[in-house]
Computed example of a mutant assay.
Amino acid sequence: MANPSIYNVPNALTAVRFALAIAVVALIPLEEFWAALVVFLVAVSTDWMDGYWARKYGQVTKLGRIFDPFVDKIIICGTFIALVGVPGSPVKPWMATIVVARELLVTSLRGIIEGAGGDFSARWLGKWKMVVQCAAVVAAMLSLALDPTPNWLPLTTQVLLWGAILITVYSGAEYTLIAGRVMQTDPQTPVDREELDAS
């Protein structure tokens, strides 16, 4: 059976999300927070569409397996980094550092395991991490966009940011333990047979 073409709808959707991610990162330093928030929400809310389409119509490609999680990381890491540079932002440099470091670590581990023929697919904790991180970003943008800021928003933003950092660290540690176990045994031993559409 021939491999599906890389020129398909799922990869096109992922490319659009990549462009939206760049737009978010560009809008935040300009302090166009409402526009950045709308574009961010469109980008993350359509994340499931490319994976769903690829599986339903048999258009899963090696490029898509790499490109889709890469774009997810650009959206989250790029937005956290951009928010750090905004005066009065609730996102601190150390928070963005932890988020980026975790993504680099897991990507490196996945490359080693899957490069050796093993399976290092995404776990549900990785999907929940993405959800909490997105919620923290939305709250941070709202805290910058709303003037005056509602009384409930600063605390909510801090809770979501700390929750995002904690789940980021925990999921990174989980992936590291899994990778260590696999590399000590057989790198071709399946780890968790779940769809690779988040990490």
Rank of each mutant, 00 (worst) to 15 (best):
M1C: 05
A2P: 15
Y7L: 14
N8V: 12
N8D: 01
T14F: 06
V16K: 06
F18G: 15
V24D: 05
V25A: 12
A26T: 04
L30T: 06
A36F: 05
L37Q: 02
F40R: 00
A43P: 03
S45K: 03
D47G: 10
W48P: 00
G51Q: 09
G51Y: 08
K56P: 01
Y57T: 02
G58Q: 08
F70A: 15
V71P: 10
I76R: 07
I76L: 12
C77F: 02
G78C: 10
I81K: 09
L83R: 10
P87I: 06
P90Y: 04
K92R: 13
V100F: 12
R102N: 04
R102T: 01
E103H: 14
V106D: 03
F120Y: 11
S121G: 11
W128P: 00
K129C: 09
K129T: 04
M130I: 07
V132M: 01
A136W: 03
A140G: 04
A145K: 10
T149K: 13
T149F: 00
P150V: 05
N151M: 12
T156S: 15
T157S: 07
L161M: 12
W162K: 05
W162Q: 10
W162P: 01
G163H: 07
G163T: 12
Y175N: 09
T176V: 11
G180Y: 02
G180Q: 02
G180R: 04
G180W: 02
T185W: 08
D186V: 10
D186M: 07
Q188F: 01
V191A: 15
L196D: 14
